Amino acid sequence: MATMQDVARKANVAVSTVSYALSGARPVAPETARRIRAAMEELNYQPNAMARGLASRRSHTLAMTFPSFDTAMGETVFEIVRGAQHEASRNGYNLAVWPLEDAEAGAELVNLVRQGKADGVLLVEVGVEDPRAAALKRARLPFVMVGRTADPTGLAYVDIDFERTVDDAVGELYRLGHRRIAFIGRPASQTEAGYGPAVRGRQGYLRAVGNRALAPLAYDCDANPQAGQAIARELAALEEPPTGIVVMNDMAALGMLAGLRAMGLRVPRDVSVVGAVSSPTLGAMTVPALTTTHAPGERMGAFATRALLAILDERLDPADCHQLVTCAVVQGESLGPAPERGEADVGSSSEKTSG
């Protein structure tokens, strides 16, 4: 099936010129319009009626929506919103954050676009099986995910490469000599609900330790300092406690570091800690300063907005918009070499996986 890009190439014009000729949004020279019509006829191009209508009768509003995954907005999410808002404004659009009930979110989003209240949708905090994405896909409406479903084939997305980020954190601890490396993840309720970061972070850890022939020690943890303190006590009480910890839970990290200190464990002399998909703000709040890996939230929000606008103009096929981003390391003081045997109460291996 021919696309607008094919017509533009055949007529030797920009894709935007084809869009203007179809929508009437801007004048197109008669000779140029004739070439475009000839190319359309030759390629048997059938313009999407809804896309033509949106091009000429836009609200110039983009809807951004979040589900309730029993999670508070972290700093990265606020950065995503900020980046999306700046990019939308730069292109003459408004960004509206739309609160919706999860059970009806998909249908409500479809109605928002069909009723002309929003031209397209930015889905944030995506589940591996996300009904919002399924509803918009069935309705053939324009949307971009900040996150991704289990099978994002044909869908536009930008997401953090959680698997690589956690693997990098485990790899750095391994390089420093650590062989008992624990993972503190998101709440169990988020994993059970299919929240993408919770699922992919844990999967990435299990793959990372498996690839290095290490025994897994993975915990789900509620997102509050008290739960982090409880995890610290549980780890310290193990017969063979970990010497390295990857924590992908900012609120739990605050309590865990305090809990380790209360148990007489020194960071990083006795145990090293790295915050995965975290923020420099968290690192600055802890003692010692936590080494973190920080996602480029503003860049992700801006990318998703540009992609959505390009899809609206038929300059981009959603199937061609797959972007994974990596996290930058923000150095703190919580990483060090594995302690020598006898320096801490450690053993040689662990086979416990806790959830």
Rank of each mutant, 00 (worst) to 15 (best):
M4A: 09
Q5N: 10
Q5F: 11
N12H: 14
V15L: 10
S16N: 12
A21Q: 14
S23P: 05
G24Y: 10
E31A: 15
R34M: 10
R35F: 11
I36V: 10
I36K: 09
A38E: 15
M40R: 04
E42Q: 11
E42M: 07
Y45V: 05
N48E: 10
M50F: 13
R57A: 08
H60V: 01
H60S: 12
T61R: 06
M64Y: 01
F69Q: 00
A72G: 06
G74A: 04
T76Q: 06
F78Y: 08
V81I: 14
G83V: 07
H86W: 07
A88Q: 01
A88I: 04
R90Y: 05
N94T: 14
L95K: 02
L100V: 11
D102T: 15
A107E: 12
E108S: 15
L109V: 15
V110D: 10
V110Y: 09
L112R: 08
Q115G: 08
G120Q: 06
V124W: 04
E129D: 14
E129H: 14
K137R: 15
R138Y: 00
R140A: 11
R140H: 06
L141V: 01
P142T: 14
P142S: 08
P142W: 07
F143R: 07
V144M: 05
G147N: 05
T149I: 13
A150V: 07
T153L: 01
V158G: 06
R164Q: 13
D167S: 13
V170F: 03
G171Y: 04
L173H: 02
Y174C: 01
R175E: 14
L176R: 10
H178G: 08
A182Y: 08
G185A: 03
P187C: 04
E192I: 07
Y195N: 06
P197N: 03
A198P: 10
A198L: 12
R202W: 04
G204W: 02
L206R: 11
L214W: 04
L214E: 02
Y219Q: 01
A227T: 11
Q229A: 12
Q229H: 07
R233W: 07
L235M: 09
A237K: 09
L238C: 06
T243W: 00
T243L: 03
I245H: 08
D250L: 03
R261A: 14
M263K: 11
L265W: 10
V271M: 04
V273N: 01
S279L: 02
M285W: 08
V287N: 00
H294E: 12
P296A: 10
E298P: 02
R299P: 00
A304D: 02
L309I: 14
A310W: 01
A310I: 06
E314L: 12
R315H: 09
L316M: 11
D317H: 05
P318Q: 13
C321H: 15
Q323H: 13
L324Q: 11
V325G: 01
V330K: 11
Q331R: 14
G336Q: 07
P337A: 15
P339M: 09
P339I: 13
R341H: 12
E343L: 13
S348M: 10
E351M: 13
T353L: 06
